[in-house]
């Protein structure tokens, strides 16, 4: 087998296969990254015709801004909480959906996934209405139990936006895990059962190792996605109260794009880019480079 693969090593086939995808990525994804890096050294306003080189001016401005440092802290909490919950819940629900003899699997899956069929905006608006202190259904329900109305987005802003994000986003890890679990040969489990392994042991020794590649992918994707997006926070709290939910994406929107300051926006993007690279590399190191190679 090795010989056959080696023979094709010099073949032009892989290049031809990779070329369309890589071309698209180079033009539409990699160029904007370099563009942002380049612009981060300039004072460039969206509407002003020219741009002036200011060296590290944008970076210095950012690191002197207390609100930016606060946003870094909030981002760690928001992303950490969201990723942990999405990862664990996705894993748990997926394993439950893979339980043998489960009836109504498709119905359960469809209902659990329902939130993901909505856009971020609609999800945020639904929760904005439900959490409304005066006319929200959640305060109505707790009032039935005699509780006083709560302004959730004032007293519990960060936990609430994390929960809404998890409610919407868990689908991704759930589907990834479930489809990967489908691929684990049933015979492995049967053999383990014969050997007397408990459900828990089977999960640890058979399921988890088989999910290594998918776990890495899921972790990277949900981390990046959570860092890069701020739609839910934008609608629910706009970063408040007093910066409690001001994640870096929200900070960027308020300070750069709402004010059309492209240079500053590019600088924040570049910082996010670097943070993302570091996180990705940590994940990959944790899982081991070999996770990405052929198993056989």
């Amino acid at each position: 087998m090795q010989t056959i693969l080696k023979k094709q090593k010099i073949s032009i086939v892989p290049i031809v296969l990779l070329l369309p995808a890589l071309t698209l990525l180079a033009v539409f994804s990699i160029y904007p990254v370099f563009n942002a890096f380049f612009l981060s050294f300039y004072n460039k306003q969206m509407l002003a015709p020219g741009k002036t080189f200011i060296g590290l001016g944008n970076y210095i401005h950012l690191f002197q801004d207390a609100a930016f440092m606060n946003s870094l802290k909030v981002t760690v909490l928001y992303v950490g909480g969201s990723v942990l919950l999405q990862f664990l819940m996705g894993l748990i629900i997926a394993s439950l959906l893979c339980v043998k003899d489960l009836k109504g699997r498709a119905i359960f899956r469809t209902l659990i996934i329902l939130p993901y069929t909505l856009s971020e905006l609609v999800v945020s608006l639904i929760w904005l209405r439900m959490l409304d202190p005066q006319s929200g259904v959640i305060n109505y329900i707790i009032s039935l139990f005699g509780a006083q109305p709560v302004n959730w987005l004032f007293h519990w802003a960060l936990p609430v936006v994390i929960l809404v994000n998890v409610w919407w986003g868990t689908t991704f890890s759930l589907l990834m895990f479930e489809s990967a679990m489908q691929g684990i040969p049933q015979s492995l489990y049967e053999a383990a059962e014969v050997d007397g392994a408990s459900v828990f042991q089977r999960f640890i020794y058979i399921t988890l190792p088989a999910l290594k590649y998918i776990s890495l992918l899921v972790l990277i994707m949900i981390t990046l996605y959570t860092i890069n997006s701020f739609g839910i926070i934008f609608v629910l709290t706009a970063g408040g109260p007093v910066g409690a939910t001001n994640v870096i994406g929200m900070y960027m929107w308020n300070n750069a794009f709402q004010s059309s300051d492209l240079g500053l926006g590019a600088t924040i993007s570049t910082i996010i880019f670097i943070v993302n690279i570091v996180i990705t590399l940590i994940y990959i190191r944790g899982f081991g480079m070999s996770t990405m190679e052929r198993r056989d």
Partner: peptide
Amino acid sequence: PADVTTYDWNTSLQLFAKGK
């Protein structure tokens, strides 16, 4: 109330319209 800082752009008018 202290949560005036979290009001949306039309929260005040809604409170007013509801007699709050």
